[in-house]
């Protein structure tokens, strides 16, 4: 592997931290409150349906339970979605996709672990290829236990989440930015040192003032080391050719 460094631009951390409640203006507070309310009333769900639990979703969405009543709609791409719904077990391969999808979603974003598999591996606990705890890799707001949970449980989970969003308590997504190094460490442990996504979480944390003490660390340093391979943006062509040759 090549040893060249492509540093990720990070602004000084102080200016990247979220301002405390006392620093926000009155208008800001009002707008944030309105925003929170709207966020809780309008939730676009991205279903990550790899497991068997997906079968319980159609009844929740259609005429029997009609989740549109509470402003929920299914959405197609991570860019548009607010909730990432993980239905069932995750293999090591699919977890990579889940992490990419999660990172491509726009904050505030919420993850729902659906079924026992996302909590402790469930019936796949003995499998070498499945992930035991989703929460190690991405921050999860709500787990819905059961194998598999009924639509009523799903509904309850959503309502619970709505309540917490409205109250400003569903902030697990901030944890991902603040303690990115820890999540990345788990990911690297599973996928290897050269694990990379095309997204730029550290940059986002800096840009949106979401950084914390745990944003940078030994694991993000590894990112710098391997960034150039995937992100040829800004890489001089001859260097890129070298990289191509070396890979």
């Amino acid at each position: 592997m090549n040893q060249q460094n492509f540093p990720v631009q990070v602004a000084p951390l102080e200016s990247c931290r979220e301002p405390g409640p006392e620093e926000r203006s009155m208008l800001r507070k009002v707008l944030d409150r309105v925003g929170q309310y709207c966020q809780s009333r309008s939730l676009f769900v991205l279903h990550y349906c790899t497991g068997c639990g997906a079968i319980e979703l159609p009844p929740s969405m259609t005429s029997r339970f009609d989740l549109e009543r509470v402003g929920m709609q299914p959405m197609v791409t991570p860019r548009q979605a607010d909730i990432l719904l993980i239905t069932g077990y995750l293999s090591v391969k699919t977890l990579k996709r889940v992490i990419l999808t999660y990172e491509q979603m726009q904050s505030p974003k919420y993850v729902m672990g659906f079924g026992s598999c996302t909590i402790n591996g469930g019936m796949y606990w003995n499998s070498y290829a499945t992930v035991k705890r989703l929460g190690d890799y991405i921050p999860v707001d709500t787990y819905i236990a059961g194998c598999m949970p009924r639509p009523e449980a799903i509904q309850q989970g959503f309502l619970d989440l709505i309540e917490r969003i409205d109250g400003g308590r569903a902030v697990a997504w901030k944890d991902y930015y603040r303690n990115y190094d820890r999540y990345l460490g788990h990911q690297q442990h599973l996928f290897g040192r050269d694990w990379l996504t095309p997204t730029d979480v550290v940059g986002e944390a800096a840009h949106y003032r979401l950084a914390g003490d745990g944003t940078l660390g030994p694991h993000t340093a590894l990112l710098d080391q391997y960034a150039g391979y995937h992100q040829a943006w800004g890489v001089p062509r001859e260097q890129y050719a070298e990289l191509e040759a070396s890979s």
């Binding site: 707008l31 944030d32 309105v34 925003g35 709207c38 966020q39 009333r41 309008s42 402003g71 607010d82 726009q106 904050s107 505030p108 986002e204 949106y208 979401l210």
Partner: peptide, 14 residues
């Protein structure tokens, strides 16, 4: 709902 959707999208942090 239509208004909430739009306001929510505008209030996204990222």
């Amino acid at each position: 709902q239509p208004l909430w959707d739009i306001l929510k999208l505008y209030s996204k942090r990222t």
